[in-house]
Design a protein around this nucleic acid. Structure first.
Lengths: 348, 348
DNA sequence: TTGAAAGCGCTAACAC
DNA sequence: GTGTTAGCGCTTTCAA
């Protein structure tokens, strides 16, 4: 028997065994597809009896709604996109943790990618992520390529930049001044009596600003213009890189002692470890200041003097900034400085 | 002037300033929307001249394709969903890193959520994630609720369980035997001459299996049936928890020395730290064996004896397993045991 | 090489 | 309360 409608094109065989949709559920419950949709999003607008039958049908069929279709139709994906330099770095992963906790509670899901500290990669990822039509986007830092900024602006969604602050964010930023941490660390160290210093820094842009803040302020205060420094590559420092850095400082820069400003607790820990295994006393011979106040910082021996940033609060503040924008509030805060704290423990 | 078509319902004002779609681009380039689609997915099927005009139009408009619509129409989302206990734990984040690196190269994006080691949370997240219609799903471990297994099976997509192995995976698994790491560690420690032991373990199911493997095997070999142990909560151990555990072992279990089997390098590091600050020698008075071979394990003082799992390889193997399934290969490997290695350094 | 038509599974607007 | 209709922006036929 020929198909009576010559122009009826079907892509696939009839709907036997096809995906379970709201229509499937509706058929089984004796209602239309729309009613199923309503039962799921506005339960109060459906009669109790209908609700019962629909729920039973959902149970039997194992129906899982298609959020892709929902997002397309409603123009709301409930998706938040996040770009961080590296997820293996606790600093960023803990921030994401705090952020996603709040966003999840509000029904949003996170899609994360790593930029590897590379602006080109970030730019490419922004494009890919925007194609998923997220409701908002979270970026690390305040430096993004011109093309990236353009795409972001064009997307017309909230953009939260975190872990740094600027007077001119794309949309809004939540963080603290990296330069200022360096300066305040220098002031603290000078106040504790240190007159000679050195720096050990990772190569990424923010670590360098922390280092430079320390350098210039310490020079100002102590008059010492010759502060030796070891600078690594962009990317996370490790305990090992800290050990190597101290060795290099001693071997190549004839470092004689004083305080060492590190761009991370990891490298600070490495320096302490290396110093001890060389029989040097910490902080008497070599004092060390870390950055980040990682979970272990208070429990090393000696415990690390470091800069504490309330990452939990930062993550939450970023989430709050985004939620505020979703609510469409008038004139929301553009810059949130959550500050930091220099914590003195045993290592300096 | 009244609308001549009384039943013409438009949701929004006419398409002025609306989103930039393929139709917009097509109009500007003087071709139909379909041709724009083709230009993007099958460039070779479009004439060079047309291609030029389309690309120019894309550039001018800043067009970003809507992957939601694409996925809905093609039934392919290029999305992979991953569920891990915690992203702040380097063990899992480094695995994700390796996995996503390969998947991204193949055009897939990762959507990650944290289960917090809770099966109920995992179940809820599986539902949410499946609603995004991922092309594949990556799960941590081999224990999932019955409802979760059912949903997963019903989704009809590749499921890779990693970081553990079982004879009966949902689809396939890539990992190693946790019990076996404990047993082999016990054998190594016994071989090194240790005759007394203790354990310090996190409370999650896999850590407990490592601990039990160590316990029973060490008891078998040494005849010592009285191995004291400290067991923490589910969730990541920290340097601090290791320090506390050693204190508890000494105070509450009158631990006199011997080898301590830890469920992580973090707690092992804590024990070493605590031992030293108490004036105990490592490994002479107290020997410590960690787990994970974290980046710092070889650089603590003394360096940690530990169990190494090639996480990079594991992440890659998991990715390969998934890609194999995407290709629809016949009868693919269901269980991949990537093994582990006991590494002896200074702490035991 | 290009286009027209149909439909992916859902939500929004409206009528009953 | 519930159903009908008209899309959301794309891919997939199929015909030209």
């Amino acid at each position: 028997m020929k198909d009576p409608a010559p122009h009826k094109k079907t892509r696939r065989a009839p709907p036997e065994g096809g995906p379970v949709t709201m229509a499937t559920v509706g058929r089984m419950a004796g209602v239309s597809q729309v009613t199923v949709s309503r039962a799921l999003s506005n339960p109060e607008k459906v009669s109790a009896a209908t609700m019962q039958r629909i729920q039973e049908a959902i149970r039997v069929t194992g129906f899982v709604p298609n959020a892709l279709a929902g997002a397309l139709a409603s123009r709301k994906s409930s998706l938040i996109t996040a770009l961080v330099p590296s997820i293996t770095n606790v600093v960023y992963s803990s921030l994401l943790h705090g952020f996603s906790e709040i966003m999840r509670a509000e029904g949003y899901q996170l899609m994360v990618s790593e930029t590897g500290f590379l602006p080109e990669t970030e730019e490419a990822l922004i494009f890919t992520h925007l194609s998923r039509r997220p409701d908002g986007i979270l970026l690390t830092g305040i430096h993004h390529s011109a093309a990236a900024r353009k795409m972001l602006l064009g997307a017309g969604i909230p953009v939260v930049e975190f872990w740094d602050i600027t007077e001119s964010p794309i949309d809004c930023c939540v963080g603290f001044s990296h330069t200022e941490t360096g300066r305040r660390t220098a002031e603290a160290a000078f106040g504790w009596g240190y007159r000679r210093a050195a720096t050990v820094s990772a190569g990424d842009e923010r670590a360098l600003r922390r280092r430079d803040g320390f350098r210039s302020r310490f020079a100002e205060l102590s008059g010492d213009r010759d502060i030796p420094g070891i600078t690594g590559e962009a990317g996370p420092a490790s305990l090992q890189s800290g050990r190597l850095a101290l060795s290099a400082l001693i071997a190549e820069h004839a470092f004689q002692g004083g305080v060492i400003h590190c761009s991370s607790d990891q490298s600070a820990h490495g320096i302490v470890t290396e110093a001890r295994s060389r029989g040097l006393r910490v902080p008497e011979d070599i004092a060390v200041i870390g950055f980040g106040d990682q979970d272990y910082a208070g429990f090393t021996d000696p415990p690390l003097t470091t800069v504490r940033v309330d990452r939990d609060r930062l993550g939450r503040a970023a989430a709050r900034a985004m939620l505020t924008r979703f609510r469409g509030e008038e004139d929301p805060e553009r810059v949130t400085d959550i500050g930091f704290e220099v914590i003195r423990r045993g290592s300096a």
